[in-house]
Design a protein around this nucleic acid. Sequence first.
RNA 1: GCGCCUCUAGCUCAAUUGGCAGAGCAGCUGACUCUUAAUCAGCGGGUUGUGGGUUCAAGUCCCACGGGGCGCACCA
Length: 521
Amino acid sequence: MTDQAPQDDAAEPTPTAEQQLATETNEQRDVRLAKRERLVAEGEAYPVSVPVTTTIQSVRAAHADLQPGEETDDVVGVAGRVVHLRNTGRLCFVMLQAGDGTQLQAMLSQKEVGAESLQRFKELVDLGDQLFVHGRVIASRRGELSVFADDWRIAAKAIRPLPNMHSPLSEEFRVRNRALDLIQRQGARDMVLTRARTNASLRRTFAEHGFVEIETPMLQTVHGGASARPFVTRSNAFDRDLYLRIAPELFLKRALVGGIDRVFEINRNFRNEGADSTHSPEFAMLEAYEAYGDYHTIADLTRELIQNAVRATSPTGDLTAVWADGTVHDFSGDWDRIDLYGSLNEALAATWDGPGRAPVITVETSVAELAPLAERHGIALDPATATHGKYVEELWEACVKPGLTRPTFVMDFPEDTSPLTRPHRSRLGLVEKWDLYVRGFELATGYSELADPVIQRQRFVEQSLLAAKGDPEAMQVDEDFLTTMEYGMPPAGGMGMGIDRLLMALTGLGIRETVLFPLVR
RNA sequence: GCGCCUCUAGCUCAAUUGGCAGAGCAGCUGACUCUUAAUCAGCGGGUUGUGGGUUCAAGUCCCACGGGGCGCACCA
């Protein structure tokens, strides 16, 4: 931006702040910069403070029923952002907006503030400025609650024009200029509160059940706990590469070994994979582990966590979420727990159009038998890394998932796709794992955790063989974790849930809407 | 990573078959003491994402690059 011209003189001084400003300018900004200069020369364009006595919200609350034309003796000093400005000659109307979107009008009459002050106001105040006004609270003849100003001050001069407040901003502009989006759009402000209320609700529910929140490493020497490609970074002090974590699981389990029996973490994970409407390279993740629980108890807890979050964020305060598109989603009651293989075989039988009866898929069904079946549903996997489990899960997603409307736990998964999960207590070849599906996407997953360090080591070795075959998402062998496991981890249920996903389920918005400042190129 | 679509004033968007780049809001000057996207009169504001090409003539057609979106693939 500053080096578009060829540098024929290497000793040329770097541009001053003013020159840099000048390279990126427009008429409207020039006008405001001149006003800033004048304010600075005459006093302050950015005072350290202004003498506010109350807030826009409080004034509105205190005088909610003021009748048109009615006046009060309540003298206030309030400040807010100028979002509308109207000038009818010797009377000016200015709409001030608080951070939460609450607006309050101020009226500047020549009779009240004097000709000189009004003239100065007209010359110096623009849309977008932070403005302080002092005066009595009245209602205008048309009934608009107002501060009838006897004094005013610029609280902070804006030098960039505000976007047009009357037409919606484009998606791209909103994502790249979130501050302006927050000024202009109630939905943007609501999202911030929804996320905060959701996080508070989750922590409250955990606290009620005696869970302890801990923070585990973001920078890891071995990446594990999930199947995903990590980001790699560099430690100068250790002179080695480090991974940004893809999951906190292996550290939370160390805490479990250490006796933190009910433990959870809400924090960021990083995965070096594609970004789309449901995936972001960095995303907030919740993981929780409950000693002496299993995948049933952790499913109960997960349902309670989500139902409490729905209650905390629902406009109606009940167990329904109203999505941005107007659809209403019911999270109440108990949620179905269906069997992965059973529901898949049901769906296959119902849609079977081949000869004879539909094949019944079991844990024993080979990759050779699954491949042609998957092909019928348009699924093609890389033969080098395809396994029984990958085929079964792909088939399930193609055949069963689209039909789910209510929140549903899908239970009991094949072993080879869940290397950190305990073998099923009664079903050979399966693990005690569930996925929770809400409206077509996977919201959370839960397990009876694998506590046997010998089997855990075998699973890691199998993963590393996959990695050797070229699977970039396979886990590394984490010797330190295995050593800790060998001291004995209590039987436990564990769960993981994407916070952004939860917000999507609560609001029906895309991930770029739920993240305040999403990564953009 | 592959395919398709898209980029025009501060913001939101027009521009017919390739034929003078426009509107609303915002801005500037002026008028107006009750406006609600105030109104009225007048005036500015553009390297049409960037670079190349075709053409008498390119916002429009072609190529490359960059930004964005959607679909596919991968994943939560």
